[in-house]
Design a protein around this nucleic acid. Sequence first.
DNA 1: TCAAAATTTCAACGATTGTTGAATTTTAAA
DNA 2: TTTAAAATTCAACAATCGTTGAAATTTTGA
Lengths: 121, 121
Amino acid sequence: MKPVFHPDIEDVAPADVFAALADPIRLGILVALAEIAEGDKARCSHFTEFASPSLLSYHLAKLREAGITRMRVEGTSRYLSLRRDEMNQRFPGLLDSVIDTARRDPNLPRLSRALSEMVDA
Amino acid sequence: MKPVFHPDIEDVAPADVFAALADPIRLGILVALAEIAEGDKARCSHFTEFASPSLLSYHLAKLREAGITRMRVEGTSRYLSLRRDEMNQRFPGLLDSVIDTARRDPNLPRLSRALSEMVDA
DNA sequence: TCAAAATTTCAACGATTGTTGAATTTTAAA
DNA sequence: TTTAAAATTCAACAATCGTTGAAATTTTGA
């Protein structure tokens, strides 16, 4: 269970966040994560519709390294969630309007089944 | 006076906007433009503190092609402004929180004199 | 102990990015 | 008509990006 690196939120620059958001797959992931309010239940493999495991790993790392998401390691799985509170404290209002914007984009990839249905609630 | 291309705001995707914002020079330009509420008075050369003319041309094109700014051609000059209303209609609330976020970033380049002082009001 | 599952790592690749500096274009002004 | 000013274009370059597929890692369960 190698620890997963999460940047201190204060070390994240706005440009880093925007770079992480500049990709449709990552925006699709963001929207899906935003939809499942009850934390920590989404796993990487829930997003294999969006990309191959290896590519997913790449995109999830981008989101994580930009301070947007958190990954909790448990067994062979990684559980994903948004760093909502920290993002809100660091960049007040930004994450909400980003999610709002992304939710309205009909061209982003979407999960065929909602995360909350895949997740063992 | 070759016409300058501006995308229809409806053709702009969120990921395009975020890509345009993923650079400190461009965020610096955005903040400076946001500070000068009375439209159309800023010129490219007002930003030579930020980058060489040629690099500036590159960055300003990125902002323009992402639907964020408008360039009015007049003589040898180009006058810059934010496409505030269109952006607000297309991505409600986004531009404001982006500007807010960027304004708070102490590491972005800043103009030594405010644009409103350089501009022939 | 072995095998499967979940995820990452790695090398490779073509494409795009940010940057530089020189050359070009366009317009205005002397 | 010449010159200067404002900005763009272009070729070049190293660096980073998104993607693929194969190999490795880690943990769980039979």
